[in-house]
Design a protein around this nucleic acid. Structure first.
Lengths: 213, 213
DNA sequence: TCGCCAACTGCCACTCAGTGGCACTATGAC
DNA sequence: GTCATAGTGCCACTGAGTGGCAGTTGGCGA
């Protein structure tokens, strides 16, 4: 039985959400570098001091939705039954399971805005890339502890994680570039398409590939 | 016949090198975050204004050696004969050719220091990750222009580039973690080993892999 | 219900990476 | 030698980020 969050807890969440919403709104309209933290905090009605108690940096406010999604994948990985499957498959399924959990109102739209911001703002993109890199490390740690991963430093294992992250990143970028309403199911489909393209990526040449992916 | 660089050109290079050397020295001894730019510029005997005419950011001073190496790979890619080879192979060979060009005194030691700094400093690592990401885009552009790449947005092509970058990054990290003298040939060997591990990375499972890589 | 304590907030002063302007200096071309 | 341009250093400034501290709020036990 989950206890109802305390007033304090609820207040903290509301503050976090207000900052995220204000960030996506203001950064999206005027550009990340043209909105100061004072302006953002004014819009969210909190002090800058509280901002920095909530987020590590200005970029983190912009990328919270993205981080939440990867965190959900790690949780799904942690909950997955132990077994001897290819790591790429295990991670693909964890990513999809995590995506399934992203069901709060307007989540897909917030992710799309985040990705648009990332594409337009090197500092955010760099932070997202670093975050994903750290996510591979967290995933390896979970696998070692719960999935009997024996050689977490082996090139094959490390590259499997990097390939997983690359596939998901590329699918997110493509999905966010689509027109029309942000649709989470379409992101799952793009993710599957990217994972499906992995084997051929090792042999693809410069000429027109056999079928557009 | 290459003309001798002008006084101006030589002065600029000396300034750049002084800043890089001072950065690696001071950052390596005290930590990136504990050395101010005033201190760095004092050590290199230039003004902060000149620092920012030379580098985009504090991080860029720390990662110049790393960037030079990737830039050499892009040059090798640009000079490679057109042909229909797997992109992964083409990029591997360009990386190795670029490595071959990194023959200035002490280069390997500077790269190792750079990587150690990167491992210890999230901001530098994030910048390096972003730089590599932009390098995939530059490589795709070169391939479209000179290697008849027909579908630069195909998932297979994008993932091929990401896999290449991941393999090289992982080999660099392993190489830099080695003890003993920094040896460029060993880095080339580690790069080949990482590329050799790519096919098995798609199927590797959590159990002990067949042979440690 | 009350009181205590810990969590949380906002205010403020500050540091330092990064920016732009401008006067001065050095170099290179003619 | 002259002149124009490239390059430099100085300076004031902004804004992200930090730490300290007093005041406020919420939770819990008596």
């Amino acid at each position: 039985m989950t206890a109802r969050p305390s007033l304090r807890e609820r207040r903290k969440r509301r503050t976090r959400e207000a900052l995220i919403d204000s960030a996506l709104d203001l950064f999206g309209r005027r550009g990340f570098d043209h909105v100061t933290l004072d302006e953002l905090c004014e819009a969210a009605e909190v002090s800058k001091r509280t901002f920095f108690r909530t987020f590590t940096s200005k970029e983190h406010a912009a990328m919270a939705t993205y981080q939440d999604m990867w965190a959900a994948a790690l949780e799904a990985l942690e909950a997955a039954p132990p077994g001897r499957r290819p790591l790429v498959d295990l991670m693909r399924d964890s990513l999809l399971a995590g995506l399934d959990k992203m069901d709060s109102d307007g989540w897909a739209e917030r992710l799309r805005r985040t990705v648009h911001l990332s594409v337009a703002t090197p500092a955010i993109e760099a932070h997202c890339l670093y975050f994903c890199h750290r996510t591979t490390e967290a995933a390896l740690s979970i696998m070692r502890d719960r999935h009997e991963l024996a050689a977490p430093k082996d090139f094959r294992v490390l590259l499997a994680m990097d390939i997983v992250v690359a596939a998901h990143q590329r699918s997110i970028a493509r999905w966010a570039a689509r027109t029309g309403e942000a649709d989470r199911a379409l992101l799952a489909a793009d993710t599957l398409a990217a994972f499906g393209a992995i084997p051929d990526s090792l042999t693809v040449t410069g000429g027109a590939p056999a079928q557009e992916h």
